[in-house]
């Protein structure tokens, strides 16, 4: 097994306990939200339709059909998604700093492994991507199951016969960003996400190499990266008065994105190879 794969396996295992806890929390919490939301809805049906004599149509007009979009208002449903996002955001830092701080000086061993330091870097990047895709995949698997449970609990005349994805992303735009509908959208959103991770890793490595000075360099690097990446949009809106067609603009953003991504990888690898200090 190549050392890169071994490192990915190792890095993943280091987070696996928390990862599986997140998975557990997400499943339990969202299933709870399905049952509580469905029960509340049926409670309202009983109250309004059967006791107070409201017609079915009036009820639906007032309370809407029951579907996944009603769940996205529940803390039990969105809470675990937010928890996973926050945990992974914190882990973006922790995946590096855990090897330096406290009683931990595992970075000595990692830097002395008889393998290229590129593998060390790539293993951390890959682990983050695996964790993200793992949690996104879990959510996508859960949605039809949750929809099915809803369909079992709530009578069909009160449910909306729309695709699962449409009902899930109906209310909140951020859910569309997290769970894009098309492969193209998925590629764009998650490539931008990956680029952000790589820029952040570069900032962290600047800090690890040059400490306080590194933080300043890192912030400048971050601003420069943002400027380079968004430069087509800036130029388009300030100097060129919508000169480019949208597809051309997208092409330019892809190019600037690739520049920032490549620069971040190159700078990170240079720092890791030549400037890092324990």
């Amino acid at each position: 097994m190549s050392k890169y794969i071994k490192l990915v396996h190792f890095e993943f295992n280091r987070f696996s306990n928390i990862f599986f806890i997140l998975i557990g929390i997400t499943i339990v919490s969202q299933i709870i939200s399905v049952f509580t939301s469905a029960n509340n809805y049926l409670g309202n049906v009983n109250q309004m339709v059967y006791r107070e004599g409201m017609t079915k149509e009036q009820f639906i007009e007032q309370y809407d059909y029951m579907s996944l979009h009603q769940l996205t208002d529940s803390v039990w449903f969105v809470g675990p998604i937010a928890l996973c996002i926050v945990t992974l955001l914190i882990y973006l830092f922790f995946i590096w700093y855990r090897d330096w701080f406290g009683k931990n000086s595992f970075i000595y061993r990692l830097l002395m492994l008889p393998t290229s330091r590129v593998n060390l870097y790539m293993a951390k990047v890959t682990t983050i991507m695996l964790l993200v895709f793992g949690l996104v995949g879990l959510q996508l698997l859960l949605l039809p199951i949750e929809n099915m449970i809803l369909g079992i609990i709530v009578p069909s005349e009160y449910t909306m016969d729309l695709p699962v994805y449409e009902t899930f992303t109906y209310r909140y735009e951020f859910l569309v960003k997290l769970f894009p509908k098309t492969f193209m959208q998925f590629s764009v959103y998650y490539s931008v996400g990956l680029m952000g991770v790589l820029v952040l890793f570069t900032v962290i490595l600047f800090e690890r190499c040059f400490r306080w000075k590194g933080i300043a360099i890192g912030i400048i690097y971050c601003i420069l990266s943002a400027l380079v990446f968004t430069s087509p949009l800036i130029v388009q809106s300030t100097f060129l008065d919508n000169f480019f067609y949208p597809i051309e603009l997208l092409g330019l953003i892809v190019i600037t994105g690739l520049i920032v991504t490549t620069a971040s990888i190159m700078v990170s690898l240079y720092l890791l190879k030549n400037k890092i200090t324990v």
Binding site: K103, N104, S105, F106, Y108, R109
Partner: peptide, 8 residues
């Protein structure tokens, strides 16, 4: 090294 080089 004079510090532990393995993960605690």
């Amino acid at each position: 090294p004079d510090t532990i080089s393995m993960s605690p």
